[in-house]
Amino acid sequence: MTQAISVEEIKAAMEAAVPGCRAEILRNESPSAQHSLLIDHEHAVNVAAFLRDDMALRLDFCSCVSGVDWPDREITEKVKVKKTVTTPEGEAQEQDVEETRKTMIPGFLEAVYHLFSIEKKHGPVVLRMRTVNRGGDARLPSLTPVWRSAEFQEREAFDLYGIVFEGHPDLRRILMWEGFADYPMRKDYVPPAEDDVEAVAK
């Protein structure tokens, strides 16, 4: 797999071609070194169309669309704070005190697109989009109008993760049945209890 064009170049080309689009490079520290581009919602379809049609890139083949769930995280970090303490002698003095601070990082859902070029035989270029949160605002623009191969995979991400792809021609549950209420691939899904009737019931 040759990554003929670096992510930086793609980012620059993208921002030049689609005015106003914001892209962020996410570094991948693993040996695979497949870095990805996080793009914003409003320009996503235009960016995708540009990537597909640009003569140098020609990313005509959207291979894999994956949903990923990043639940709310709590980060505990130790921070040094300056505090005024009263010494035993009764004087006010400034001291460094260690404090543990907890920060909630709100969760989000993510869609990852792996793009290749059949014509130029290069890739993968990894595109990412993130929802605002995991609740009611789990929306992303659909890239199915650009690459039809995303059709079933976006439906799958909708079914199993609950990402609503706006502009998808036929967004229904695909693997589970209509009327199923949960999103089973999310990290916090709990299967129904009656499943676990063990073979030792009286």
Partner: peptide, 23 residues
Amino acid sequence: FGEHGLEPAQNPDVFHPLRILGQ
């Protein structure tokens, strides 16, 4: 098809789970 799984989860007239001997 229910909201979370099948309803009922089993048919008690048919499903006879094995009992561990001596219980």
